[in-house]
Design a protein around this nucleic acid. Structure first.
Lengths: 110, 110
DNA sequence: TATTTATATTGCAATATTACGATACAATTT
DNA sequence: AAATTGTATCGTAATATTGCAATATAAATA
């Protein structure tokens, strides 16, 4: 039905899913990559970097902000964006867990 | 429009987004966690583990399979599922990159 | 071969996401 | 204050996702 039955899953599962979902769009991947590349707060040129209209980019930034994957501070009439460790630390833990499991995996039935 | 303009982004960006999107649902997080927990090929009890109907679980498994995050082999009339390193290695690289960046980040303007 | 067991597919309804034009808002500059 | 610049929100259309009943398929077993 397009409606996720989140009430049937744990908070942990819902939180990880929300983070992964927020990352799961090429425009938002591009935003993250750009913030890493320039290694500084980016004051608004993200719209010019992406092949999307300004309201669309604003919406993507909002989703990343809600997921705590980026932070935005006002600087005059512009906004300074950079990565937010909070969200990334959370999901990094999950991937490190998987990585460790895959490296030590004994069962090779598949 | 609900239609992602994937043609405007790089293959890398689209691939990472597809992987993150596949992970971005609590049912699929639960499947991944279960496969890690039991540390063996799971022949079909995934349906019993999840609070969803069999066709829905089958659909989630299909999406994880398409994203190369799990593998499934026939074993008699059942199927043996386990994690697929292919997809995880790809997205792990991305997160390690981010992690390294965040650890070394000098710019603390946000 | 008929039945059982395990999984996939189809079809559909409900909801969510994506995109953008139009517009609003807020700070800066003239 | 008016104009400019940067960003957010609203409204809406198009498409995607989620979920499941019904059904199909495929292998094992009786």
């Amino acid at each position: 039905m397009g409606i996720t039955k989140s009430e049937h899953f744990t908070d942990e599962q819902n939180e990880l899913a929300t983070l992964a979902k927020a990352i799961g769009h090429p425009a938002r991947i591009a935003i993250i990559q750009h913030l890493i590349k320039v290694n500084s707060c980016v004051c608004g040129d993200i719209v010019n970097e992406l092949p999307l209209a300004q309201p669309t980019v604003s919406q993507h930034l909002k989703e990343l902000k809600n997921a705590r994957l980026i932070k935005g501070n006002f600087e005059g009439n512009a906004i300074c964006y950079c990565l937010n460790e909070e969200g990334f630390n959370k999901i990094n833990g999950f991937f490190e867990h998987i990585n460790t499991y895959l490296e030590n995996k004994k069962n090779q039935c598949c």
